[in-house]
Amino acid sequence: MRTRPTLSWSPTEDLPPGTTDLGPVADALRSGGVLVLSGAGISTESGIPDYRGEGGSLSRHTPMTYQDFTASARARRRYWARSHLGWRTFGRARPNAGHRAVAAFERRGLLSGVITQNVDGLHQAAGSEGVVELHGSLDRVVCLSCGAFSPRRELARRLEQANEGFAPVAAGINPDGDADLTDEQVGDFRVVPCAVCGGILKPDVVFFGETVPPQT
């Protein structure tokens, strides 16, 4: 009876060894037409954690899903309480050397475009233009009923007024701007509706369980 051979191949076996030689990168950039695709790693030096890296938040935090957000007023209260507190820190993040380098390459005409999975807007803050945001941006809010968009800073002002004195101490901040709060800390946090139609407000980001807009 023949036995099936054991497969011991690893996808890393065909990769060259790690190196700090940036020559090939410089050569690629010098030729131009480079497309930049960035993820959470580029923003960690700006104080925004990632999901899957060492100590990433997925090890301790379950992100909000679209299904939970739309189905449960309690889930929305919990989300907005945590996100409102997290925004105070998230909104103060500034571009780091990585963002500035990408913007510099773009200004010199070396890039064909910038696509990011991040929702922090730091590429734009560094000077990049025409950035494709695969997962949206936390600095915008959209109404699920009428589709009206509004600035996040305006929602922050309204939430401050509706929840005067809300200032719990969070255990940490997650990549989606969500602060780690207990149910007790969330308490009876008040969520405000759309100022246009009274509908449900959602950050203009792609939640887990939601699809990226076709036009994006």
Rank of each mutant, 00 (worst) to 15 (best):
V169Q: 11
V196N: 13
P203E: 11
D180G: 07
V186P: 11
G198C: 12
L155K: 06
V196M: 03
V205I: 15
A167F: 08
R190T: 11
Q185P: 04
P203N: 06
I200S: 06
C194I: 04
V191L: 06
T182I: 04
G187S: 02
P175F: 05
A171K: 13
Q161L: 15
I173T: 05
Q185D: 00
A167Q: 11
C194V: 07
V192L: 02
P168T: 04
P193H: 10
F166W: 09
E184C: 10
D178M: 01
K202F: 13
A162S: 03
E164F: 08
E164S: 09
L201I: 03
N163Y: 00
G199S: 05
G165M: 08
G209F: 06
A171L: 15
K202D: 09
D180V: 15
L159V: 01
I200L: 14
F207W: 13
P175N: 07
A167H: 07
C197A: 08
P193F: 09
G172C: 08
P175V: 14
K202E: 01
R158P: 01
I173A: 02
D180F: 09
P193D: 08
N174A: 13
R190G: 09
D176Y: 11
A195D: 10
A162N: 01
K202A: 09
A156V: 14
F207D: 01
P168E: 04
G187T: 03
T182L: 09
F207E: 01
V192P: 02
L181I: 04
D183S: 08
F208L: 14
D178A: 12
F166H: 02
L181V: 10
L159C: 07
G199F: 02
P193E: 15
A179V: 07
L181Y: 07
G187H: 02
D183I: 10
V191K: 10
A179M: 03
V205W: 01
A170V: 00
L159H: 13
V196A: 15
V192C: 03
A171E: 13
F208H: 13
L159E: 04
F207Y: 15
G177T: 06
F166N: 02
P175G: 04
P193T: 12
A179S: 15
R190W: 10
F208T: 09
A156S: 13
P193I: 06
